[in-house]
Write a protein that binds this DNA or RNA. Structure first.
Lengths: 231, 231
DNA sequence: TATTAAATCTCGCGG
DNA sequence: CCGCGAGGTTTAATA
């Protein structure tokens, strides 16, 4: 990994064209030749970048560029798509290289998967007398998150989201339409369950006879893990 | 901006919990206190991070941590959400600080916006005799990308995508449903236009009487700008 | 290998 | 300020 702090301008051409005016920035060159251009603000997304696989070549500036103050030109081209990033470097303030080795990688504890597991265990949250049929119930157009039966034995299809949006309602609608054509399952009712349900999604869902259920993640998992575990 | 190359392990707890085992990594501290943890590979996304607004505090390790080789503990807490990132630092290989100033920011030439402008100018691509009514035609549930009229004067609603997927068809369907309730507009037909249309999206669209139109971006904009402009 | 859905999404625009 | 849509989305899972 190479770290360069330099005054530079940047041009990108590929799926869009973009330009960064002259300013001091961090240029981060990774071991695979990929490049990130970061400013001292914003979030984790670089101002501009080139993803691997790509190759970086350093070019001597031509006469016009040199007279404009350019000391080096970095050209990074994507191996497959011909996307290109050109960094015109004026002054270099810092330049260092470091050998990091291979990273063991991130271990993460998911969100929706965890919610699904918890709701399957606490299936009573759907209402009294509900029983679990199975998680990831397979249909021709994809898996329904949870299939259950209500107190009367009727099928209930549950679509789970962290944030309930319109497309989640559309997804559940397609499942319900399909499942209700199956005489062994019909009639199937729908439950749209999420930590947070957008008003428009709720309106659309209820308009289609789909019940909305807001889940309290913290209450479902208890307070014995998560942030608490760090202390 | 502060750049630190250090052997460290990282723990995050917030919207999920995650852990990074001990390894050498780049710690990038931005001026607003936000932190990025990068390895020497992957794409532009850090292994772990904390977005602003947040505060970083450096803590002395306790006895257990010290005996495990921890020399410093960085605790970064999000100001609003209580998300937390804890970096346990063992060895520091590099540490430097740089004043970058405020970045002038990225100037970009969009994709869908550009496509929309081009299609509005080349409205004949919809078919002979078509005329433009307007771009971003406002409805109660959002703007229709392009509203036009066909040779017979009937309304045509166009939904534009770079990649045509099922959700784009759903979006257009909602618009059509609404617009066809308006006697001043009805009957409104739909055109789903994209650089690339997924087979499932095409099937769904045609099943609903929506016409599909594949756009050749390069042909529409000509070959006189874009990458060519860089040389 | 292609497709699909999630993301600690991020980012920008409009109401 | 919030909601909505797009992204050079990226990324992971899965058929």
């Amino acid at each position: 990994m190479r770290l360069v702090i330099a005054t530079c301008s940047v041009d990108y051409a590929g799926r869009l064209t973009a330009h960064l005016p002259l300013a001091k920035r961090l240029l981060l060159v990774k071991g695979d030749g990929s490049l990130l251009v970061h400013s001292d603000g914003g979030s984790y997304k670089p101002l501009n970048w080139m993803s691997p696989p790509c190759t970086l070549s350093i070019i001597e500036p031509d006469e016009v560029q040199r007279s404009a103050g350019v000391s080096e030109v970095w050209k990074v081209t994507h191996t497959k798509t011909a996307d290109m990033l050109v960094v015109s470097i004026h002054d270099i303030e810092h330049d260092s290289a470091h050998d990091l080795g291979v990273d063991p990688g991130l271990q993460k504890d998911g969100v929706e998967a965890h919610l699904q597991k918890l709701l399957a265990e606490q299936i009573h949250l759907l209402g009294d007398g509900h029983t679990l049929v199975r998680r990831e119930y397979m249909t021709a157009i994809g898996p329904v998150d949870i299939l259950a039966r209500d107190a009367s034995g009727a099928s209930v299809a549950v679509e789970l989201k962290r944030r309930g949006d319109i497309d989640g309602v559309e997804q559940l609608t397609r499942y319900l339409e399909l499942m209700n054509r199956d005489p062994l399952l019909a009639p199937v009712t729908g439950v749209f369950a999420a930590q947070e349900i957008k008003p428009q999604a709720r309106t659309l869902a209820e308009d289609r006879g789909i019940r909305c259920l807001v889940l309290d993640y913290d209450a479902m998992r208890g307070i014995d893990d998560g942030i608490a575990r760090l202390f």
